[in-house]
Structure formats: structure tokens, C-alpha cells
Amino acid sequence: MSFRDRRQLRAGNDPWEGGRSLEWATHSPVPFYNFAKTPLVHARDEWDWRKEHGLTQLAPERSEDYEDIVMPKNTAVSPLIGVLTFVLGFAMVWRIYWAAIAAGLGIVAALIFRAFQEDTHYTIPAREVERMENEIKAREAEPETSGVGAYAWSIIAPTEVGTS
């Protein structure tokens, strides 16, 4: 591991080249939508199977093959339930029953509130998926010469910038 040589040593998506399952098939770091298009699974160790069969191209090649991706929206309900569950556990351990009842009712109320929420998903348009996917591919293909990392690098070792 080396901070100085991190551009030369930068790990790819399948850094040991022995990855067998699908998590090694997508980009690293993984984009928030995971896969540009959900891969069809042919074998238990799909990524290994695809490498054997020479099918390592995971994103669609043609522009028209991209599709909209439906994603869940962020919600404050789940962390709220987490906090209330902590209160419930604490109150039960120390027998603070009013707090336990309040937290328990709060959890139920949060769940019911969530059940009535209509607008819980959003759609990434196919064109936007394609744009992000191409951006990631371009970044993977080139050495790190822009962005925050390169800026920091130019301060630490200015002469090294642009060589790889």
C-alpha cells in the first residue's frame, strides 16, 4: 500500500482478478444504482462464468439498450425507528415503563406513517444512467489527473502530476 504511488497501484473493479460472484463485476466504488442494467444470472459464480465465456462487458454497449432505473427514495423513518428502538431497549432494561410504552407506540406510529406514504420511489432516466455509466468508464480508463485527489497530489508532488 502506498499513498505516493496510488495512481499506479490503483485497484480495478476485480483487483485480484479471481472474483467469482457479481459484486466484482460492477464498478469500484459501486455506483448507487449498483448495475446499469440488471445482469441475467447463468451460473452460481456468475462473474467467473462470464470471464470463462468472454462476456465481461457488463454495461449495455448500445445506447438504446439502457433502461430507466427505479430507486427507493431516502427516508427519515428508518433511522427514527432505530433511535426509538434504542430508547425502547434502554427503557425496558432500566424498567422506565413510561418511556418504553412511548417508544413502542412511536415505532408503531412511524411504521403506519410509512405505510401511508405514496411517493417512495424515483426514476433515473435511461439517458442519465448512460451518462453516469460513461462518466465512470472514462474515469476508470484514465489516470487520476483531475478532481480532489489530483489537486492534493499537485500540492504534495507537483512534478508527478500527469505521469503514470
Binding site: 440488471t38 441475467l40 462487458q57 439498450d65
Partner: peptide, 21 residues
Amino acid sequence: MSVNASDIDGNSVDLFVEEPD
């Protein structure tokens, strides 16, 4: 519309799930 690719033996393989849900 399914997306096919040819593997090293020349067989046609479906690459993606067409209707995920």
C-alpha cells in the same frame, strides 16, 4: 428487447434481466 452477446464458442447469450419486477 433482449440484449445478446456471443461467447467465446460463438453461442448467443442473454446478458440482462428483461423484466426485473
